[in-house]
């Protein structure tokens, strides 16, 4: 009796606390988004003079027109560029990461340990530090100011390799590989037909990780690309933040419209991700 009574009270308190924490987290995460949504509708003047959390006169259309005028009608092209660079780097980078991770986890080769240490060291290296050396390298390769200058460096993800290796170790049993070999499957076929399927959730994670990292990488495209038509949306929008007469409302609207592809991607891919996590938990 007393035990049941004692058990019921913390349960109710737990529910309340959980709700409070969740609501707090929701406000914390969605608050800035709400601010951007509201601010994207305001004129420059209202941004200064009205409360940041309350809507003022509606300037959506004007801000959109300003956005297109300042970006010289390149805005949607820039968003498209960002999607292309991030998706290309995401797909290639995921394949490379998983393949390398698989190799490191399942094939004992001389020097394998050294490679792992090198990959881990790469994990600790800030990408910004590598931008200038990469830039000099790409000048020599003659690839500066081409999409490859952004895509190729972004494909390399030490974190992806690391994650790939961990996932392979955890979810690809050696017995399965041996069975496949006994059945006469080639190593290529084993990798593409067996291993990749088992690694689907890991691949979604790595893909999203590389995609977002590429999308957010500002310094690399800033250095590598000069042609207006090649810029990703992050760099392009930054160019609107000039010292003279910057149109904040329009920039904020651009920032909001610019993240739409990211939101769609996350909502679209999250069920694969959830399925993967759940299957791992049951196992």
């Amino acid at each position: 009796m007393s035990a049941a009574w004692g058990a019921a009270r913390p349960r109710r308190a737990t529910v309340v606390v959980t709700w409070l924490v969740l609501i707090g987290a929701l406000l914390y995460f969605l608050g800035p988004v709400y601010w951007v949504v509201v601010s994207a509708t305001k004129s420059n003047q209202d941004l200064y003079t009205t409360s940041g959390l309350l809507p003022a006169a509606n300037h959506i259309a004007e801000n959109y027109a300003t956005l297109l005028a300042w970006t010289q009608n390149q805005f949607w092209r820039w968003v498209g560029n960002s999607v292309f660079y991030s998706a290309a780097a995401g797909v290639i980078g995921t394949l490379v990461s998983v393949a390398v991770g698989y190799g490191l986890a399942k094939f004992k080769t001389p020097g394998g340990a050294a490679v792992q240490v090198a990959v881990l060291a790469g994990l600790l290296f800030p990408i910004a530090l590598l931008t200038v050396p990469l830039y000099l390298l790409f000048i020599q390769l003659g690839l500066v100011n081409t999409p490859w200058a952004v895509i190729i460096p972004s494909c390399v993800s030490p974190f992806g390799v690391f994650l790939g290796r961990i996932y392979v170790e955890a979810s690809v049993p050696d017995e399965l590989l041996e069975a496949a070999r006994l059945d006469g499957a080639s190593e290529l076929r084993i990798f593409f037909a067996v291993v990749l399927r088992l690694l689907a959730p890991a691949m979604v994670t790595i893909f999203l990780f590389i995609f977002v990292a590429t999308w957010n990488n500002f310094l690399l495209p800033l250095m590598m690309l000069t042609t207006n038509e090649l810029k990703p949306v992050t760099v392009g929008l930054y160019g609107m933040m000039s010292y003279f007469n910057p149109q904040y409302g329009a920039v904020l609207q651009g920032a909001l419209l610019g993240v739409l592809p990211l939101i769609v991607l996350f909502l679209g891919l999250q069920r694969y991700w959830q399925a993967g996590l759940a299957s791992g938990a049951v196992k």
Binding site: A99, G103, P147, W148, C155
Partner: peptide
């Protein structure tokens, strides 16, 4: 094993090769 690893980086190599056109 070498073949398997080579397949993994195939995409990257292809990317590099394709750049010569650009």
């Amino acid at each position: 094993h070498t073949v398997a690893r080579a397949a993994g980086v195939l995409a990257a190599v292809a990317a590099l090769a394709a750049t010569s056109a650009c």
